[in-house]
Computed example of a mutant assay.
Amino acid sequence: MLYGNESAAVRRERLRQEGKIELPLNVDTRKYLLSFVRWKDVLVSLPLLIAAITVLYILYQMGIKINSQNVIICFTPWVVFLVLLTIQHPDRKNISFLEHRIVWRAKYNRRQKLFTYSKGDSMNNSKSKSKGKKEIKDIRDQLGISNIYSDCYETNDKRLVKVIKVSSINLSLSTRSEEEAIYKAYETFLNDCPEATLQINLIAQPVNLKNYALYIKEKTANEQDTAKRLLSKSYLDFVSNIEKSRNMVSRNRYLIISRPFTEQNREKVLDELDRDTKILLSQIENMLGGRYQLKGKILNNEELHNLIYTCIDYENAQVNMGFLNTSLPVTVGEQTYNEMKARWEKEKMEKII
């Protein structure tokens, strides 16, 4: 497969040297009239085409001579609009300019961006108590997640959900027999999964170099040489810029396991789900042998919160995940402390975690 004059292997190696990855495109099932004009684009622009033909017909009925100038003027809006529909996103070729820059932007501007809720009262109770008042949208209804506790999501449809983050292997470096063995082991793994609802998700997330940055800081903490300290600081700034770059993402793989529960058997289901998750984690790590090895990690409450935050607001998560945002001990007055305490109490009531 070629990308211009560059083969896929060469392109992949170049991106690897630049510290980037190429996001795969979804299979494009849309029908094309030409190599770049879709039938959908023609149908969307059809009203302008009909309007141009109608205007020419009216001019003809009025006795005005139809010439090339009149034709160009009438058909220009349709042609310009059709060209706009065929312009593609520079990186994601299966998304049009109109869809990305206009339709999605308009939906984003109209979308509600601030959600608040109060702990304790469900939306059903609040609705029954406040009939006749303006309905307040609850963030739990919007996300489908009512709580995060015991390293689980609790969903609105009464399910407990655990998430396992799984490492990956590079199949492009394996032989055909190794690939067959890997796929066979994966088939066996799926057949032996616990009797629970299982999902496999691939999520693009901001690059997280926090642990690497902390490692560099520890190694250079006692450095006395001024030049080396400056070099270390500039390198940490470089790593921070990599984290905040919109072009740098990591593709993380997650296994999601869930079980339904009721208020009566909540603790029992939680124990069963915890046991199934540990069994699943053991099966993942023992799935492959030889030089291939998968590692898994059960996400804790904080990591679950960061995951859902990234899925909801990717751009702000990309900025706020920086490793340089550290908290330092401070001394404040009594009035400031009381204000901060009041704000913390309010946030405890209005934030999901």
Rank of each mutant, 00 (worst) to 15 (best):
M1N: 14
N5L: 15
E6K: 15
E6F: 13
A9F: 02
R14V: 11
L15Q: 13
K20W: 07
T29N: 07
K31P: 03
L33W: 00
L34K: 00
S35L: 09
R38I: 05
R38P: 04
K40F: 00
D41A: 11
L49N: 04
I50G: 04
I50C: 08
L59S: 07
L59N: 09
Q61L: 11
G63W: 03
K65F: 05
I66M: 06
I66W: 00
N67K: 02
N67M: 06
S68K: 01
V71E: 06
V71T: 06
I72L: 15
T76L: 11
L84K: 01
I87A: 14
H89W: 14
F97Q: 09
E99N: 10
E99H: 12
R101L: 08
W104I: 06
R105Q: 08
Y117F: 07
K119F: 01
K119M: 06
M123Y: 00
S126A: 07
S130A: 10
K131D: 02
K131W: 00
K137I: 11
K137Q: 07
D138M: 10
R140E: 01
I145Q: 09
C152P: 03
C152F: 08
N156G: 06
N156V: 10
K158R: 01
K158I: 01
V163P: 00
I164F: 02
K165A: 08
V166Q: 06
S168G: 11
S174E: 14
R176Y: 07
K184H: 05
A185M: 13
E187V: 11
L190M: 07
E195V: 15
A196F: 04
I203P: 01
L214A: 13
Y215R: 08
A221D: 12
A221N: 12
K228S: 15
R229M: 09
V239M: 15
M248W: 04
M248R: 11
V249G: 00
I256Q: 02
I257H: 04
F261R: 11
F261M: 12
E263G: 07
Q264G: 06
N265H: 10
E267L: 15
D276G: 12
D276L: 09
L280T: 10
Q283T: 02
N286S: 14
L288H: 06
G290Y: 08
Y292L: 09
K297N: 08
L299P: 00
E302A: 15
L304H: 00
Y309H: 05
Y309Q: 10
D313Q: 08
E315S: 02
A317E: 01
N320H: 07
M321L: 14
L328R: 15
Y337K: 15
Y337V: 13
A342M: 13
I352N: 04
